[in-house]
Design a protein around this nucleic acid. Sequence first.
RNA 1: GCGCCCGUAGUUCAGCUGGAUAGAAUGUCGGAUUCCGAUUCCGGAGGUCGCAGGUUCGACUCCUGCCGGGCGCGCCA
Length: 585
Amino acid sequence: MKEQLTDILQQCIQALQSEGHLPADISPQIKLDRTRDKQHGDFATNLAMVLAKPAGKKPRELADLIVAHLPASDVVENVEIAGPGFINFYLKAAAQFEVVSQVLEQGNVFGRHQLGNGRRVQVEYVSANPTGPLHVGHGRGAAYGAVVANLLEAIGYQVHREYYVNDAGRQMGILAASVWLRYLELCGETFPFPVNGYKGDYVLDIAATLHRENGDRMFHAWSEVSKGLPADAPEGDKEEYIDAVIERMKTLLHPDQHRLVFDLGLNYILDDIRDDLAHFGVVYDEWYSEQSLVDNGAVMRAIERLQKSDHTYEKDGAIWFKSSAFGDEKDRVLVRDNGVTTYFASDVAYHMDKLERGFDRVIDIWGADHHGYVPRIKAALQALGDDPSKLDVLLVQFAILYRGGEKVQMSTRSGEFVTLRQLRKEVGSDAARFFYVMRKCEQHLDFDLDLAKSQSNDNPMYYIQYAHARVCSVFRQLNEKGFSFDQQNGQSNLDKLTESHEADVLTRLSRYPDVISNAGQNHEPHQLVHYLRELAQDFHTYYNAHQFIVDDAALRDARLCLITAVQTVIANGLALLGVSAPESM
RNA sequence: GCGCCCGUAGUUCAGCUGGAUAGAAUGUCGGAUUCCGAUUCCGGAGGUCGCAGGUUCGACUCCUGCCGGGCGCGCCA
């Protein structure tokens, strides 16, 4: 519809140019919008106001010219000029009904586009360190990332979903040490647990598995382990202490044994995360290992490339990247004075690798606390001669949970936090998905647990799902009353849909494709959420105002076509959000 | 101190990439209704869009400076 009108305007401009009313050297971007107010017709364009200056005419005068030169159209009923020079289009009634047939014919692909033209885009999300279960903060990134990926796919991109597994860093060393120490406890040792160790219950579970499968094979007496170690906090430095523990563990255990403990912890937690996300409807094409970048030399290769292009220098025994030359606030260390590469070095290699894999676009979804990290990654890409504009980093703000109007405290103290799994158990995966993407990502999210759980119209997810279930219910009633639905008959009688409520639903339905392309291109799932709520509202209002199951077969079938279209669009939208569309509630 | 994000109705939020009289939901006040599924419908009140400038035919939207809130500023990951 929009395309047809844009075409008409395009032809009109060419006509005006050939007649000399408009300069020939301009090719204006035609902006045509749905009107906000019905009094302004169905579509409106500001073309006359935009072109007034280059044309050297008054906006309204130019609007007159444009309207006079508009080619005939079988969808336009009337055109009016209003306000400072808006051109408003009123569509013919038949054109309004078209959407119903479109939805019925296209079914679950209605609303999809080919805007992406099959270009390859990689979306990386969650990528939490595998050192413990996902908490509610990760949940938002998971839901948001999954929906952004779905939306991009819906507008014609070839999407690659990826989780970056930080399996190479110091944090993993701490985890392995924590597991081993808990194991020593299970072997009967008693000693103070490191202040900086991981203290969650899951560490005990992993240690128990280790003990069950290996007995006392990896046992070393605490006196042996602790011999000559620096003091832990508060007397000493907790970082220094834990590093010393990690080193001691490596000297006491055979490398194979150490590997075993390390992998047991890593795999246990990774399996847990995978399982958690799968139940949350969040899936990946690839779990990409940081360690693999170290092993296959990609990290060294990235550093060498930076060195060769003269973007590094040595200072205090470390190798630095001159990121400040590319807008970062300071330079960053790639290789520490002890010879170990930094996490940043891995990440440079990872992003280099992403672009080498040939993605046209790369999207990283990070927690907002990582925002300071963006400039240095972009700087690195630029220094490597890649195009940093191919990388979009979307920062997701924190979610704050509320229960009974009170903020739910999320303590960072020893192992106490609200996990994603706990949240899903409390409100269900559907509600969690829905509420997480209800706000744009840069907005802080107030997550109302009571509302998410409530089975009432105040709960927007319930309200939307209920609209879907209600359509299903109408069809069940239809059968009970001995009627059957003749879709063909309905489609040929759509002109019977003359009620204002029906017009509202029709208009709303026709907006769906625009909502998808907008939400997809701007990475804004919340637009879809708001749209679905509005559609549900239009439907419920319609439902309350009119009977669908009437004796007049033509009208009945037409109305059933309309509500089937509503049902389909709601199902399509919810599917993109990763929320179920129940047939009854 | 520097950087990023946010600031719109009592509350939670939209505002379609600069358009027409700033909209929903919820709460509140008034009225109607009890019908395919948890009632629903109609109406009222409620706003100096944080503040002050600037850009232009036009600014909630873009720019600058303040104010307030969140987050971040490691040879951690």
